[in-house]
Design a binder for these strands. Structure first.
Lengths: 333, 333
DNA sequence: AGATTTGTGCAAACCGATTTGCATGGTCGG
DNA sequence: CCGACCATGCAAATCGGTTTGCACAAATCT
């Protein structure tokens, strides 16, 4: 008997399958003595309930997915999925302690494989407006929560990234550091973090009565595209003395552009990015960035998703506010 | 009808469940016309076979696990699971393209959650001798392959890390850089990489007719423990002029120890580590390390595991040789 | 023509759990 | 003493697929 089943165990214990099931689930009272005997026997013969059978009956698989909608060109490269994987690490632990397994859906080409996975729900990392991933899950009736709000979808619970506040914080920091003309470089996709960042930038400039210099880079182009855009930007606006580039891959490109134009960072150009991954830390000079508390966000997202799965129409929780990590690139460390 | 089942589809198509099943699996020939009709109808009503039901019948879940047996104290910290997560990122993609999902079992306390997961097999990252994880899977009859051989277990297929060759390469590099008395710091667990490294070190010293200076640090103590051990080591052997510290967390500790003893790296003490993660890159000075080609290893491991699951008693494949990444800490960059 | 093979499809058993409805015996209050 | 109630446990239905054995017709072989 390689894998004892519930029937085997029931026979051995001299009770019915029902009783064994209840002994484990506790959904109905069973005599303590009987219960003890069953559990002991179970340990003895190494009985483990078959998850597939449980799933089939209950409709719960005990599996949640973590998915990224970032294109591969951004996710790849030196920091190799840094943002995504940093979240994954914490989310995996958080899931397991809640008796769920976490499976990974990294950015990739062949997405047909996706519906091969049976999952109870999914966490989406920074989806954008009309993100096909969102529809995909939604249409399959799979509960979704996101890290970073989904633009235009108020029905999807999310863990807030506080991108508006982050942008203000960084912009103020750059100005405090002496910058007077700050530009902004975001991406062409309609991610909520871009929208909020642009809104904050706009409000901030308006407030100070200064012109806005904004450029949007195509995510698919990755670091190289950003470098080109940045080179053009710096040519067109030689008086720019600071740049906020939230996407770390773009910030790498911006750093290169600055270097090739002989604009010293931070002396003649101050730089700041958002995600404080190895790209920011290893840049030359190291980039001022923002600690988003990704581990805390990941835990919140897992809890939120589980609530949503349980039908408690999860209320988007309060997430921790980001914290500035000043480094040489803004000239203040 | 929220989720159409195979019965629904069969009724709609005017055929039996059997025919529908065969139309999709192709395990038996069905009339091309019938087949087309079924598939079209399936797309129309959004039919997806229920994975739990399939799993229950076939015994295959389409899920593989990636597990680490590193204690949390090592895995945590600045590089937050770097080694493990770097493998995870590639393995996830490799799995998905082979129609398997990858779920994560990071190092954690409560390991009871582990048997909550239904999986076809597991990849173990650098297990050690008598690793409880190995037995765990093995006893459950779950196929296992490892990245880095399992000491004392020739029955478990593995992807080789070439630790012997790596050690020779690093030791030679340190000596080429001018070091004459090179020490080695490994860990107390019996990981295969330690065993091979120590063997290479031993052979190398013997070859040159010089004494061996080896210290093993308790993994559970993490970076701090390594710092203390290293401090003691440098006191006892003031003539040491180089140190190979394969575990990156320990290398961080060694760097700190050197600093507090005012031993300049690399001038009076050359350092090298193995895993080229952010710990090595961000150290001051940056540490000479080794590119293990983790992405290639991860792919190989996934393939090997799938072969093993399919009962082809996977032959441990040839894995790429590691490559040295010289940095300031060895005084050669 | 009769026997054999091939193509096509169906009914029913099966995978291993959960859950519902019912049966039994014993205790208790009135 | 009887009905109500509780504690305990069982048989059977169910979840949604896959697989086996068989049936029937048409084609091919002897």
């Amino acid at each position: 008997m390689s894998k004892p089943t519930i029937s085997d165990l029931a026979r051995l214990a001299g009770v019915s399958k029902t009783t064994v099931s209840h002994a484990f689930s506790g959904r109905r009272h069973v005599d303590p003595e009987t219960c003890r005997k069953i559990k002991e026997l179970a340990r003895e013969v190494g009985y483990r309930p078959n998850r597939s059978a449980q799933s089939l009956r209950t409709g719960r698989t005990g599996m949640i997915a973590l998915a990224s909608s970032m294109p591969f060109s951004i996710a790849a490269g030196p920091s190799r999925l840094g943002f995504f994987m940093e979240i994954a690490a914490t989310a995996a632990v958080a899931s397991l302690t809640r008796n769920q397994a976490l499976c990974l859906i990294p950015p990739m080409e062949a997405d047909g494989a996706l519906d091969a996975i049976a999952m109870d729900g999914a966490i989406l990392v920074e989806p954008y407006a009309n993100d096909p991933m969102v529809d995909r899950f939604f249409n399959s009736g799979i509960p979704v929560v996101s890290i970073g709000r989904v633009p235009g979808r108020d029905d999807i619970p999310f863990v807030d990234l506080h991108s508006y506040a982050t942008a203000l914080m960084v912009l103020n920091h750059l100005r405090d550091a002496g910058a007077s003309k700050v530009g902004l470089m975001t991406g062409t996709q309609r991610r909520n973090s871009y929208l909020e960042t642009e809104a904050a930038y706009s409000a901030s400039c308006e407030n100070l009565g200064i012109p806005q210099i904004l450029v949007r880079v195509d995510e698919a182009g990755g670091e190289d595209e950003a470098e080109q855009c940045c080179t053009a930007l710096l040519r067109d606006h030689p008086d720019l003395d600071a740049l906020y580039v939230p996407v770390d891959a773009f910030a790498s490109g911006a750093t290169k552009a600055a270097k090739s134009l002989h604009r010293n960072v931070p002396e003649t150009l101050r730089l700041a990015t958002r995600y404080d991954g190895s790209r920011a830390k290893l840049a030359d000079p190291p980039l001022t960035a923002v600690d988003l508390h990704l581990d805390a966000l990941a835990k919140l997202a897992v809890d939120l998703l589980i609530q949503t799965i349980d039908g408690q129409k999860g209320e988007s929780p309060n997430s921790p506010m980001p914290r500035l990590v000043p480094r040489q690139s803004s000239g203040t460390s």
